[in-house]
Design a protein around this nucleic acid. Structure first.
Length: 570
RNA sequence: GGCAGCGUAGCUCAGCGGUAGAGCAGGGGAAUCAUAAUCCCUUGGUCGGGGGUUCAAAUCCCUCCGCUGCUACCA
């Protein structure tokens, strides 16, 4: 049987993530992981914080903390928020872990031995005020092309030309404004990516049919433009140190570039997991070393900005090692979620962030809207109006109200027990036939990782329940034909039970409550892996049920107005 | 500038060579078990503009316009 290795792009450490970050990687990975587990597949869902790099150092500086402490705190915050969103990680690691350090150094060593790395001297901007090297973007000055006086060292935001920091007129530090900067020579390790174009293209072409267009076109764009060799070290203190035996001692005190060590943390976090349980190395290797992982399908979830690093950078690391490491099998890429058509922005505090989202509403509300409107084929836009309308209609009216009306009616007219009288007739058979089709279709969409379509199908399944109930109308029959009413109620309760199962990967908390209205719920609510005729006729007559509290309170006009004001709608 | 994606009903989107679709919103009706929720019926689009290929184009090609993103040391 296939085992599933699932990774979510690593959220960066510099603060709480927004809904765009969530929907682009962590949440879809979670829904898929839950679906696999529901089907009984052995599944490993790995995520971690991405902790290295200049922004982490700067964020720590701003917070008045040393960077290690800052990262520890932020990691805990992100972990807690992820759990608040019911992200079912098997492990949420840290790219600053010892395990990742060792793996990163190991892979760099074999790349060095295999001749895929070389030392080159580059010109770097050094700032005396900060006593540090500055990444290009943290040097600002006047653009030599258009005269814009706040052009960044990597690109002028005004005329969009790509720049080198040495091009800037009157350069200064973006951090302090200090003009005491100089260009220094600095030795760095370069990964000779250019020699991997052919194997990469072959590999990418082999996924022509099973990768989304978005992913293929981004990957090919990079290959088509010609792969430049890429610096994989930086003049920073915070990061994985370059070992002394690489680069003939010219790289003392440098660290690997965050993009080199971050994907390796997928493996690192797996080892963190097995180490934390005192398991031998063979346990993490059974996911990552193909000789032990022939039955593993590896899926990566990420937003489109991450695609180059997962289709080019990381695969080169793995291929160039000459060792057998698991390469990704399927990549699911996402476009951007926008906030009223504009960018979600961490620095400008524009949009909705994971912490505030959970303060307003339970995770399931967000999970439903985000997955039902996932930016799969194009960017999609979050607006409070749309969010409230969708959540109220789909969750409160269509699903929540269905569960409520069936269970309440059972209590008021059937003593709160599953009625056993009567046999299923034509209406029930028609419903069963429809649901056999729809459940199969829903599963097919989840297998394809087509979330918009999958959730539309799930919603259609809920609607089918409402349609059936209207036709069965037990509230009418109960007055004249108790047996007929009993059939409708029994089917209604079986439908509630079904909805609890089918909804679990997407809205786990509500699904659990729905399941518990009928009977105690297991930790993993399994997929209804049998024909609907059986599944919808399985509740024992006489079994007691208990209506849940209101599953989804509606978002009121007042709340909507308040949130729009508070978060700046439009 | 280059590259990529997108432009289909008021809104959010599906369809991607064979008589224009879904959900929401709007209109009408039914029902009254239920969080006034539900169910049925229904209005609504010359598929961004123009040109071409084809028996046939929203769907393929060219071109123009518009929006978004990327452009390699932010991640």
């Amino acid at each position: 049987m296939t085992r599933y290795l699932i990774t979510s792009a690593l959220p960066y450490i510099n603060g709480v993530k927004h809904l765009g970050n969530l929907v682009g990687s962590m949440l879809p990975a979670d829904v898929y992981s839950r679906y696999r587990r529901a089907r009984g597949d052995e599944t490993l869902f790995i995520c971690a914080t991405d902790e290295h790099g200049t922004p982490a150092e700067l964020a720590a500086l701003e917070a008045g903390q040393d960077v290690a402490t800052y990262c520890t705190e932020q990691h805990d915050i992100q972990k807690r928020l992820g759990e608040g969103f019911e992200l079912s990680w098997d492990y949420f690691g840290r790219s600053s872990s010892q395990q990742n350090l060792e793996l990163t150094q190991h892979l760099a060593r074999v790349l060095w031995k295999n001749g895929h790395l070389e030392v080159r001297t580059t010109k770097q901007v050094y700032s005396h005020a900060e006593k540090r090297f500055l990444p290009d973007r943290y040097v600002i000055g006047t653009c030599p092309h258009c005269g814009y006086d706040r052009a960044r060292g990597d690109q002028c935001e005004n005329c969009t030309r790509v720049l080198d920091p040495t091009d800037l007129i009157d350069p200064r530090s973006a951090l302090s404004g200090s003009k005491e900067i100089e260009i220094r020579d600095s030795a760095h390790l370069f990964l000779k990516q250019s020699s991997f174009v052919e194997p990469l293209r072959k590999w990418i072409d082999s996924h022509d049919r099973d990768w989304p267009n978005l992913v293929l076109s981004i990957a090919r764009k990079w290959l088509d433009e010609g792969l430049n060799d890429r610096g994989i070290t930086r003049d920073l203190e915070w990061g994985v140190p370059v070992p002394d035996d690489i680069g003939d001692g010219k790289l003392k005190g440098k660290v690997f570039y965050v993009w080199f060590d971050a994907p390796i943390e997928y493996i690192g976090a797996t080892k963190e997991l097995t180490d934390s349980r005192g398991l031998p190395d063979s346990e993490w290797q059974k996911w990552w070393r193909p000789e032990n992982a022939k039955d593993v399908t590896y899926l990566e979830f990420m937003a489109k900005d991450n695609v180059p690093f997962h289709t080019v950078g990381f695969p080169i690391t793995v291929m160039g090692s000459g060792e057998n490491w698991k390469l990704v099998d399927r990549i699911k890429g996402f476009n951007w979620l926008t906030y009223y058509g504009g960018k979600f922005s961490t620095s400008q505090k524009r949009g909705v962030f994971m912490n505030t989202a959970l303060d307003l509403l339970p995770a399931d509300y967000w999970r439903w809207w985000l997955m039902a409107n996932a930016p799969e084929s194009a960017d999609s836009s979050f607006t409070w109006e749309h969010f409230a309308a969708v959540v109220n209609k789909d969750l409160a009216d269509v699903l929540g109200n269905f569960v409520n009306r069936v269970t309440k009616f059972t209590v008021s007219r059937f003593d709160g027990k599953v009625p056993g009288e009567g046999e299923y007739g034509d209406e029930e058979k028609a419903l069963i036939a429809e649901l056999d089709k729809r459940v199969t279709q829903y599963a097919a969409y989840l297998e394809d990782i087509e979330y918009r379509k999958a959730l539309a199908e799930l919603r259609a399944i809920w609607v089918a329940g409402n349609e059936y109930l209207t036709k069965a109308a037990p509230w009418t029959h109960v007055k004249t034909d108790r047996v007929k009413a009993a059939v409708g109620v029994r089917m209604g309760l079986n439908l509630v039970h079904l909805f609890g199962h089918l909804s679990w990967p997407v809205i786990p908390t509500a699904a659990k409550k729905i399941h518990e209205a009928i009977q105690p719920a297991p930790a993993i609510i399994p997929w209804p892996d049998k024909p609907m005729a059986k599944f919808l006729d399985q509740l024992e007559p006489g079994q007691a049920i208990s209506p849940p509290d209101v599953l989804f309170a509606k978002i009121t006009d007042e709340q909507l107005a308040e949130w729009k004001t508070r978060f700046g709608g439009e």
